[in-house]
């Protein structure tokens, strides 16, 4: 591991100031992704600015009836909070379906959202990779890409975003609050991560030194029901092959409000806006769900070995929506 300096500033302004003038510096949350990548030589910051103990450790109700989640809140703390389980159960479900307890206890909300792809070539400094080393090539396209993207990829990169939490937050219309030397700003979570295009090394739209301070959830949709479902190679302790987070509100048998986000299909949590639009005002039936999801997935461009993700994502989404539409049949909340 390359040598680095370590600082633990007391507040956000000091943290931002430390990073702004240091192009080789990085924020440290729980370290469960960054330290791993430093050991692998994939990341080599010369200064770590520890933000895991900044005063962003609260989960509080906002005036408008939403929820504000500090960026330094640990994943396990967030998942077990009563208000989260009761009002935003998919946040809890998504977190609990990811990484084991040991990692969730250390991982922060900010770090979770900015964790990097699990693409094998990205993690192997002995291999080319456009994301790690721009212009070196993308061996995944022809090589091992079973886990990788079917939506929104480019010829330069087919990586996926591995976060389960981000998928739930995308379906909940979460906002991300940021601060940098230029001042504070806020973004919808769905605009935080970028599609690769010809700059796959840029995972997000964040500027150097921009700090995530909080994630904000709008008030829950009245009578909305929601669920997170994840498909993986084994029953526990594995990243998603595909996952779906959905929120559904049905009135008089018709879809009145719907949000669908897919995980593990693209470089960012994939909001299924085509499907959502197609479903509004339609009968909440399995047939309508299937047709809408097919329209969304028509944009899929699978590679040689990940075509299975198209029917997998379809089945996940249709089964989740059907369960949500039929609460009396014992589906999830």
């Amino acid at each position: 591991m390359k040598e680095f300096r370590y600082e633990r500033p007391a507040d956000a302004d000091a943290a931002v100031a430390l990073l702004t003038d240091a192009p080789g510096a990085a924020y440290l949350g729980g370290g469960t992704n960054l330290v791993d990548l430093m050991k692998l030589g994939v990341a080599a910051p010369d200064l770590l600015v520890d933000v895991s103990r900044l005063p962003f450790e609260e989960v509080t109700e906002t005036d408008g009836g939403g929820l504000s989640i500090g960026a330094a809140v640990r994943n396990s703390t967030l998942a077990s909070r009563g208000i989260v389980r009761e009002r935003y159960p998919i946040v809890s479900e998504a977190l609990l379906s990811g990484a084991p307890a040991q990692l969730r206890n250390a991982a922060t909300v900010g770090g979770n959202l900015l964790q990097r792809t699990r693409c094998l070539y990205f993690q192997d400094v002995g291999k080319p990779c456009n994301k790690r080393q721009p212009g070196s090539g993308c061996p995944a396209r022809e090589g091992v890409h079973r886990d990788l993207a079917i939506l929104g990829a480019s010829e330069h990169c087919v990586a996926t975003n591995p976060s389960d939490l981000a998928v739930a937050l995308a379906a909940l219309d979460a906002m991300v609050h940021l601060v940098s030397a230029a001042g504070p700003r806020s973004l919808p979570l769905t605009e935080l991560h970028r599609l690769p295009g010809d700059e796959p090394h840029r995972d997000t739209v964040l500027r150097h030194g921009e700090l995530i301070t909080a994630v904000e959830l709008p008030p829950p949709v009245p009578d909305g029901r929601s669920a997170y479902r994840k498909a993986r190679d084994r029953a526990s302790f594995a990243f998603a092959l595909a996952s779906v987070a959905a929120v559904l509100q049905v009135r008089g048998g018709l879809v009145h409000h719907v949000r669908i986000a897919f995980g593990a299909l693209a470089a960012r949590p994939w909001r299924a806006r085509v499907a959502e639009e197609a479903l509004l005002g339609q009968p909440a039936t399995e047939e309508a769900f299937g047709q809408a999801i097919d329209r969304e997935l028509a944009a899929a461009r699978p590679l040689r070995d990940n075509g299975y993700k198209v029917p997998l994502a379809r089945r996940l989404a249709v089964s989740v929506l059907a369960d949500l539409a039929a609460p009396e049949h014992g589906g999830p909340r």
Binding site: Y6, L28, G30, G31, A106
Partner: peptide, 19 residues
């Protein structure tokens, strides 16, 4: 490498001692 940090279980291999 699981140990208890302030009572919570963590993987000691991914935590920096300085933090």
């Amino acid at each position: 490498c699981t140990v208890l940090l302030d009572g919570r279980r963590v993987n000691a291999c991914l935590l920096l001692a300085v933090s």
